[in-house]
Nucleic acid binder design. Sequence first.
DNA 1: TCTTTGACGTACA
DNA 2: GTGTACGCCAAAG
Length: 109
Amino acid sequence: MALPPYYQQVYEVTQSIPEGRVTTYGLIADYLSLGSARMVGWALKQSLRLGETALPAHRVVNSKGELSGRAAFATPTLMAELLVSEGVEVVDNRVQDFQARLWMPSEMY
DNA sequence: TCTTTGACGTACA
DNA sequence: GTGTACGCCAAAG
């Protein structure tokens, strides 16, 4: 069951996000030229549905630094807990110093 | 096939 | 900061 090509690329980028850093759907979408940030969200959600627990999807947030994907995890608080355990400050489902912790796909080399 | 929905983003009032 | 509108593309019904 070959997964759509962009799914795989989204997974690669997501797995390349350093611990304690975060990135956004729009950044990934733009980097992969998907043309739409929604595709990134779809791919990540599908991956969790497929059981790809090795995917650090909790490090992907929206452009405001909000944990909009928390609902897709086992519990609504799991995403925030994972980030906090990695050293990322999270208050009210929002990443503190979001801009400073932002990671860009072009950094992966 | 058409319509609705969705882990989004930008623009504007 | 809040609310509305539109664009974007894929999956589900």
